[in-house]
Nucleic acid binder design. Structure first.
Lengths: 203, 203
DNA sequence: ACCTGGTGTCACCAGTCGGTGATATACATC
DNA sequence: GATGTATATCACCGACTGGTGACACCAGGT
């Protein structure tokens, strides 16, 4: 093996990535990580100290959160709020849909707390908060709540779709199903916004 | 140990239950199951053949799905449809909230396919379908979709709440947060139903 | 040429895993 | 009491796990 510590570090980290995506988080371990990277496991201890250290480094140096394409760039200023909210929900779910790594991390986070899942959670949280802030009209708690529940719902459907676990016959791995769901999401957000505007007019 | 095969069978099964709820599904294994039940693991092989057989028996003989209290019993016949739909969503989530075992099984199902998770999935699916059927007005796909997404969203929030993983500052383990979310759910379902009624009148 | 420190390789440890064969013990039947 | 059978216990296997110490190698500096 060539003597290049930085390169082996990277080999280990990207080996971990393929390991997580291929075997799932239950398959992650010292020996497996070393095998996957084609490296003696003692090097992992040398460079990262422990499994926790490895996960932490992975969290710091890898892009965990699938980049949401910048949602608001090509939006005219007069875009209705409900349309922005819809975008947030749908873009979030599409980004997750595209990233098997992120999917596995969401799943991991639901079952275990470790440096990686914690960091991943924070990064997701930030991304979400930033999106909400950009929405302009944050202070309405109810709308934030609705958007959050919808995002969670889609996340859950995506995770179920991975192993063909339909829910109420909704198999989110099928594109036509996704389209249908997205239409409903868009519609429900629109009506909810309208109903709230109606109320505020009454006051 | 007393010689009572049926009793040891039950000891093994209920030991598995406490094992799952205490350690999570990642802690489930032959040795652990035997330890937990205070039984030699060879007995597990004798009675259940394999881990798969044990999980299958567990699925058949234990109540996996938290019984939704019969939602529709004390409902007057003229209860608005949107109220019924709301009940379905909220009762489903409250039932899950009460059952740590079911929560773990949902989580397990997202990461692995085995006799137990498969059976659990089917049982959840049936329960959901039955609820929808009772709702009377099934054929509206959009409403079914909305209800499903909302249920998924609440499921996800519940799972996050287990390990204090708030989402957009929504910590579903706090009762007051749950109340707020439930109010929004109820409200959004109501407005969605109303908007659809309005449309059908137009036709 | 010699040392030094960073790097990679190997061998090994104790502990746990899933899984199995042989054997002891209790109980019902004769 | 003797026999047979179902039940439970024990000992063990190979494979794998996380973790560590000893050593070989190869650079650069003196």
């Amino acid at each position: 093996m060539k003597r290049d510590s930085e390169k082996t570090r990277q080999r280990i980290l990207s080996g971990l990535e393929t390991l997580i995506t291929r075997e799932g988080f239950t398959g992650v371990g010292m020996n497996a990580a070393a095998r996957e990277a084609g490296v003696d496991k003692v090097l992992i201890y040398r460079y990262f100290g422990s499994m926790g250290g490895l996960l932490e480094a992975f969290a710091n140096e890898k892009k965990l959160c699938p980049r949401m394409e910048d949602i608001f760039d090509n939006l005219p200023d007069d875009t209705p709020h409900h349309e922005i909210a819809t975008r947030i929900v749908l873009d979030h779910s599409r980004a997750l849909q595209k990233s098997p790594l992120a999917q596995e991390l969401v799943c991991w986070k639901l079952t275990e707390q470790n440096p990686l899942t914690i960091a991943f959670g924070k990064s997701m949280e930030q991304s979400g908060m930033r999106a909400l802030a950009e929405m302009g009209i944050i202070p309405d708690e109810e709308i934030v709540t609705l958007v959050t529940v919808l995002i969670c719902g889609l996340q859950h459907l995506i995770l179920r779709g991975r192993n063909n676990n339909p829910m109420m016959n909704i198999d989110y791995s099928k594109p036509e199903t996704r389209e249908k769901v997205e239409r409903v999401i868009s519609s429900v957000i629109k009506t909810f916004f309208e109903s709230r505007e109606g109320e505020s007019e009454k006051l």
